[in-house]
């Protein structure tokens, strides 16, 4: 059992090689995939297409950043898509100044402005996240169950709020957040990358970030080290909620519309992005960098398959298989680490 007196042996070199591959596997896979698509379909490498891929990725990428915090604590959030739809509708209603003008399309339908709309979306996200985090920590219901419930509750709330129809037509200042560009770069891509950098800094260099890893890595040791384990767990769901709200705002801006069925199935893509990016579902290990790579990988894969005219049904099958393979790889790497 104990490896007393044998701290470093010859296994160290092979462990490092394996560790290197394990660490950069998603990135290597992403580059290989891009090379393959570039050869098979030259259009893939055009700058228009690449920015297109990144813009497509940015919404689920934002959610994946939040999901990274959640999964680092060995949690899961299945409600992201539903919460996003609900938050988007609230933001849209605020932007339109109420529900009565919701079908009016165009610049004339200005309500309380994009600032308040964005705040409303984020507030809904934070509240939704907090309620779920509270239920998970206070009533000790597993995150899977709480957020499975949340998935249904928020979707129902969205349908109820929308009363059957979408809310469309925002002013230019609003839609700029989804459709605008700074230079050649789409605004959602910039939001995504800025959020990723901030999240990276928080996880890497702050006390809070440390504690997220600690709670996920060994909750008992974290508690015995005096950490507020329940507070930290609750807060990662609040962070997830924040990103769901932000994502909702950007998505509404990009589509110039918010609807109750928005974000359906996002939980799959988002969780897949995080897991493919190397974050362990067992908690305690993972990076934002990995999540960004994971998000891009899924985006590139879908884009390439579309360019190659692969049916969307088959795309779903491929994504599903890749998720399972990624987790199998994670489990394998973990057992290797234990033996090492």
């Amino acid at each position: 059992m104990s490896t007393t007196g044998s701290p470093a042996k010859a296994t160290d070199t092979s462990f490092d090689a394996f560790g290197f591959i394990a660490r950069f596997a998603p990135l290597i896979f992403l580059l290989v995939l891009m090379a393959v698509f570039a050869i098979v379909e030259p259009r893939f490498l055009s700058s228009i297409n690449l920015f297109n891929v990144m813009r497509q990725v940015s919404i689920t990428g934002l959610l994946a950043i939040g999901m990274t915090f959640v999964i680092l604590t060995a949690g899961i959030d299945l409600s992201v898509g539903s919460l996003l739809a609900f938050a988007g509708l609230v933001a849209a209603a605020v932007a339109k100044g109420g529900m009565q003008d919701r079908f009016t399309v165009g610049d004339d339908a200005v309500g309380y402005g994009w600032q308040l709309a964005a705040l409303a979306a984020i507030a809904v996200g934070l509240a939704g996240g907090y309620i779920q985090g509270f239920a998970i920590t206070r009533f000790k219901v597993p995150p899977f169950v709480v957020t499975l419930g949340g998935m249904s509750v928020f979707r129902g709330a969205a349908l109820l709020f929308a009363a059957g129809g979408p809310i469309s037509g925002f002013d230019k200042a609003f839609t700029w957040w989804g459709q605008g560009k700074i230079g050649p770069v789409p605004v959602p891509v910039i939001i995504f990358l800025v959020a990723a950098i901030v999240a990276h800094i928080v996880l890497r260099y702050t006390r809070f970030g440390r504690r997220v890893y600690a709670v996920g890595g060994n909750p008992e040791a974290a508690r015995l080290s005096g950490l507020n384990v329940t507070g930290i767990i609750c807060s990662v769901y609040v962070i997830m909620g924040f990103f769901a709200g932000l994502g909702a705002f950007v998505l509404a801006a990009r589509l110039n519309s918010a609807e109750a069925v928005a974000g359906t199935g996002y939980e799959l893509t988002v969780i897949a992005s995080v897991v493919i990016g190397g974050t362990s579902l067992f908690g305690g290990a993972g990076t934002i960098f990995g999540t960004v790579v994971g998000s891009l990988l899924i985006g590139v894969l879908l884009n390439g398959l579309v360019l190659m005219n692969v049916s969307s049904y088959i795309q779903q099958i491929i994504i599903g298989v890749i998720i399972v393979l990624a987790v199998a790889f994670d489990t394998f790497a973990k057992s290797r680490r234990k033996r090492g």
């Binding site: 890893y213 890595g217 015995l224 080290s225 305690g284 290990a285 680490r337």
Partner: peptide, 9 residues
């Protein structure tokens, strides 16, 4: 290992 350390950190 179970109660004190974060072995992956």
């Amino acid at each position: 290992k179970q109660q004190a350390l974060f072995l992956g950190l």
